[in-house]
């Protein structure tokens, strides 16, 4: 019989993020599919009571918590100690956790500590045939594998957007506090804050409805034989502002940034999507002047509706990968789109 642990950390406001609720949904389903395997909840944070209460109706056998000022910051040493203590307290055989940056930093190390194994970039969990199995990515989202493991404990780190968030009754949950005493060596690191670009220069908007993917074509010679990088930059920024879109860049365009070529000044490695970049999730995606094939196009695998603007009708980025391809000059199209968005 498996013993399941749903592992979460609280947000700075003491709540549980949507992503955590997605992992809880998956854990709940797994527990049900394993005909009543006990599900425990483990929460880490400065104060975990509110978060535990918000999922009080999830049917957990126990609510465990590691709390206190030491555990408010996303720091490896303290988070690892807390997660280790929770895994052990729950005697968990299968641990399900959301792939937040905080958990990604620490859970593989926790697996090592508890003598277990870990799977990350998991997109699906099932219990067909009475044993847990996971589907996860390999080769940077280019290959998908379904596997089972003999080793326990097994820590499963679930990618965001892969399941419905758990919805259920809030209430009062009795949290058993698991004591964790940090040694001084665990306090050598202090998280001092978060650095983000100023709001007006923000180009990455994870919650945006639209991802705009700019390709290297923007900085190439245009039909008049000239490069129009400055105009491209203006058009794209104006579009992002008006459409409140998030910006992604193809590898070749992002790489140009480092080469002193005509570039878009606001494009950084953080914008890069694709094989060696991010694979963001947005309901819609519009690519313009992109060229490439599988390794690059993987960047908009998780975009539900996709359209592309490209002068080349046979472009590998668009054909077979987008729902609609507009064979047109992206400069001209974006200029008109911006004007139309301005009227709205």
């Amino acid at each position: 019989m498996e013993t399941l642990l749903f592992l979460a950390h609280v947000e700075s406001d003491g709540s549980l993020a949507t992503q955590a609720r997605e992992a809880l949904g998956a854990a709940r389903e797994m527990a049900d599919a394993l005909s009543g395997a006990p599900l425990h909840v483990g929460v880490v944070g400065r104060d975990v009571a509110a978060a535990a209460g918000s999922i009080a109706g999830c049917g957990a056998a126990r609510f465990l918590g590691v709390a206190g000022a030491d555990f408010s910051q996303p720091r490896y040493a303290s988070d690892a100690a807390a997660a280790e203590a929770l895994c052990k307290a729950a005697a968990a055989t299968v641990v399900i956790a959301p792939a937040t940056s905080r958990w990604c930093r620490v859970l593989p190390g926790v697996a090592q500590r508890v003598g277990g194994r870990v799977d990350t970039h998991v997109t699906g969990i099932s219990a067909d045939g009475g044993a847990p199995s996971v589907t996860r990515w390999y080769y940077r989202q280019r290959m998908e594998a379904t596997l089972t493991r003999a080793h326990r404990p097994w820590i499963i780190v679930l990618d965001p957007g892969c399941g419905a968030p758990w919805k259920g009754e809030a209430g009062a949950a009795t949290v058993e506090v698991v004591p964790v005493k940090l040694s001084e060596t665990c306090r050598r690191t202090t998280v001092t804050g978060v650095q983000a670009p100023p709001a007006d220069q923000q180009t990455i908007r994870p919650d945006a409805g639209l991802l705009f993917v700019a390709g290297a074509g923007w900085t190439k010679t245009q039909p008049d034989g000239k490069v129009h990088a400055a105009e491209a930059a203006e058009l794209i920024l104006e579009f992002l502002r008006k459409a409140q879109a998030s910006l992604g860049g193809s590898k070749s365009l992002v790489d140009l940034t480092g080469e002193g070529q005509a570039v878009l000044p606001f494009m950084t490695h953080l914008n890069q999507i694709g094989q060696t970049g991010a694979t963001p999730r947005h309901p819609k995606g519009l690519s313009a002047c992109c060229h490439g094939e599988e390794p690059h196009v993987v960047g908009w695998r998780f975009i539900s509706e996709r359209r592309a603007i490209n002068l080349d009708p046979n472009c590998g980025w668009a054909r077979g990968k987008a729902d609609v391809l507009y064979v047109a000059d992206a400069f001209a199209v974006l200029r008109r789109v911006n004007a139309l968005l301005g009227e709205k």
């Binding site: 940056s101 998280v191 804050g193 978060v194 650095q195 983000a196 990455i204 994870p206 953080l270």
Partner: peptide, 12 residues
């Protein structure tokens, strides 16, 4: 360190 939303977490 890179964290969600194109931001960086700063630690010492």
């Amino acid at each position: 360190e890179r964290i969600e939303g194109g931001r960086h977490q700063v630690s010492t």
